[in-house]
């Protein structure tokens, strides 16, 4: 610091400021908190901000299960697949893993509904429909990411069979999702989570059984599974829209909301 600056600084120190009133500071804090809360209420949030906000509300066990499933699948793929001509263990694994991946997310989608939370959710800032829709989107994207990683690792060893691998991965996944969404759309019950779980378990067993059958692979080669693939994607798209639209209907038809004022 220059000598001149130091001298000026010392001189300026003589100009002291009177102490502020502590009550005024308390008032400022109170008003600032109020202004911040009002801003939160009137604030419009963007789509991705809403989605990232909802990610935090998805249970940790879902992410842990998803991660465990992915790591387990990759470990098994590494053990069975690489350096072996026989692809059956890989296909078996892919088919089973796809249904299990779908199985993990469904109870979470129905969490609020299954725990009688719909009245509270409806009173809050986001409607039940938005919440359910966001959960479906987040878990759907997470499932797709997991399956893409499994597919990429599987295809790394044998790229010529990638189309068949896509079919073995996505047809069981799509069919499991279609079955669960059909239940959600047509059976209006608090036990939909259990029904979905039961359907997923049935699908896992079915595809595991099919994977052991050699005809199953031949069907994929002849193109029967390609037809299945397209049909399942179309049906899945329709069901997603129907389920999404039905959430408000489900909530407002419920007896808890039909109670009259005494």
């Amino acid at each position: 610091m220059k000598l001149n600056d130091r001298k000026i600084r010392e001189d300026l120190k003589r100009f002291s400021v009177p102490a502020y009133e502590p009550d005024k500071m308390k008032e400022t804090i109170f008003l600032a908190k109020k202004a911040y809360r009002e801003r939160l209420l009137s604030k419009r949030i963007g789509f991705w901000e809403f989605i990232t906000m909802q990610v935090r509300f998805i249970g940790r066990w879902v992410w842990l299960s998803q991660a465990a499933l992915l790591i387990g699948s990759l470990c098994l793929l590494n053990r069975f697949h690489f350096g072996k001509a026989d692809m059956q263990p890989v296909f078996l694994l892919l088919s089973s893993a796809a249904s299990v991946i779908a199985f993990v997310g469904f109870p979470e989608i129905l969490k609020s509904y299954a725990h009688n939370m719909e009245e509270i959710e409806e009173c809050t800032r986001f409607s039940m429909r938005k919440l359910m829709g966001s959960r479906m989107l987040i878990l759907g994207l997470a499932d797709l990411c997991s399956m893409t990683i499994i597919l990429a690792v599987s295809a790394a060893g044998n790229a010529s069979l990638i189309l068949r691998m896509i079919l073995y991965l996505f047809v069981p996944f799509n069919l499991t999702c279609c079955a669960c969404l059909t239940v959600l759309d047509h059976v209006k019950s608090r036990y939909d989570g259990y029904y979905s779980g039961a359907i997923c378990v049935a699908c896992i067993m079915l595809f595991y059984k099919l994977a052991l059958d050699k005809k199953y692979y031949e069907a994929a080669a002849t193109g029967a599974w390609i037809v299945f693939f397209y049909i399942s994607i179309a049906y899945l798209a329709i069901e997603i829209v129907r389920v999404f639209q039905s959430f408000n209907r489900v909530c407002f038809n419920d007896e808890t909301l039909s109670a009259k004022w005494q």
Partner: peptide
Amino acid sequence: YRRLDNKHDAQDVTQEVFLHFCRNFD
């Protein structure tokens, strides 16, 4: 205070600074 030379004005403007910060936090 050093700019306005008045304690009450300085306190009011200080309050307004923080309210502005909260209202325009985004």
